[in-house]
Design a protein around this nucleic acid. Structure first.
Lengths: 247, 247
DNA sequence: AATCCCGCAGAGGTCCGACCACCAGAATAC
DNA sequence: GTATTCTGGTGGTCGGACCTCTGCGGGATT
């Protein structure tokens, strides 16, 4: 992709990329209004917009109608929405997502045990408490469940891994939301989370990794059962016709 | 962000997403010409283009000037170029990328040992041979190095993990290309690759994982040395907070 | 004086219609 | 027969008109 040339869109992308790399632009900063910026870059507003659109699609820019265009803030997100699209496109299977998640999160938990700080432990503890408090309300439970895992990702001290995890998790989330109402063993799930929390807090990386693995394996089978019980097959897989393939 | 709402761009994205999910569109298929498609969707060509641009940025569509617009083919790629951008934006550090890579690839190697097929083993063997043949030509060596790892990803049987790995790898690749010329211990590197290959072929998952870890740890320190020897610091962190000015 | 509401200004969103650049295959020239 | 040119179709860029949304300030209301 190292073509600085033609393609207005790349010109815009590279220009902004430059501004970011030199520090002229930082997260939260606002870029000039489209009309003005376009004039400054000597390109049409339309072209500028395609470039901005490109960056926005990647989550690097945040465009707010009627307000302005900003450099994305907050935790980095990688192609969040794209995974589900790619999934539909290439027929990703549910077990593959779980496998990926299992690998990422178990290591994330181990890292969190090694590097986590008091503030993270506090958040984890709080989320666990909330989970116990909402075992009878799957919807609310799910929220704290997600947050718990997100805190672990932060505690790992590796934003890249955290971003990758978020990518997978958000793809699984929609699915999960549809079936969570049928969940039964939330108490058991909460217990496991508590175990994970304890392992991390006591800085026992191996234990944290192991329990996390167990938790996700259980979550996977639970999810499969709940999905199977669902009326219409909502996802998973379809094998229509493929033409030729291979690589 | 599952809103069918206004926003022409989302209308387009959802429409195409639908066509993909129902199987009307498959990898390699071509969508109608912009003018025609826009008419069919009752929107302007500009809006259609915005939506297509969005999908193209995520790697779901492949737009070819003068030819047409196609659904992406080949192995899925997640926000490939985005990671380096996000990296610049959030100050990802080199060690974080290596850590992520180490975690992903070691597990990938283990999976490959469990699920790899004869055809994968053959490719791996071939790449190893090529590596030995190019120990004196870093540039060429690098090509086979990358391919070797890619074959392992394929052999793992999990396209999601493969895509995640590709995301990280491509971000490291640029960096690598700049310093590879100074590499010295390619022979040693080739030996390690050979070890990995053997472990995978003998279906020794634990060994594959372990050697891969060792290999990547070594690659990391080599990279650090080579980078340090470089003239100007190319990455890492920057703190300037200057506004105004530009270009 | 404090509050509420409306309208303005500025930002992004959509559209149109013309024209440019590119690619592939057909028609033509050698 | 091969090389060259032409041509039709497709994406890419342009600019400039008009719409919609948001934030905010000033006037009307209480």
């Amino acid at each position: 992709m190292p073509k600085t040339d033609t393609h207005m869109t790349m010109r815009v992308v590279n220009h902004i990329r430059n501004m970011i790399e030199t520090g002229d632009l930082q997260p939260g900063d606002r870029i000039p209004p489209e009309r003005e910026f376009a004039r400054k870059l000597r390109i049409s507003r339309a072209s500028l917009r395609t470039g901005i659109g490109y960056l926005a699609a990647m989550g690097v820019m945040d465009v707010r109608h009627g307000v302005g265009t900003f450099v994305a803030e907050g935790p980095p997100e990688i192609g969040k929405s794209s995974l589900s699209l790619l999934g539909a496109l290439h027929g990703f299977q549910s077990w593959q997502m779980f496998e990926a998640r299992r690998i990422l999160e178990s290591e994330l938990a181990a890292l969190a045990a090694e590097r986590g700080r008091e503030q993270h432990f506090a958040s984890l503890s709080e989320e666990v408490a909330e989970m116990y408090a909402t075992v009878d309300n799957p919807m609310d439970y799910l929220i704290h469940d997600v947050r718990f895992h997100r805190v672990i990702a932060q505690a790992s001290g590796n934003p890249i891994l955290a971003a990758l995890m978020e990518t997978i998790t958000s793809a699984l989330y929609d699915e999960r939301r549809k079936t969570v109402e049928r969940s039964r063993d939330l108490k058991e799930s909460a217990d496991l989370h508590r175990e994970i929390y304890r392992a991390i807090r006591s800085r026992n990386a191996a234990e944290a990794r192991s329990v996390m693995r167990r938790h996700l394996a259980m979550a996977q089978s639970a999810q499969e059962v709940e999905t199977a019980a669902a009326p219409s097959g909502s996802n998973g897989q379809k094998k229509p016709r493929r033409k030729n393939e291979e690589q």
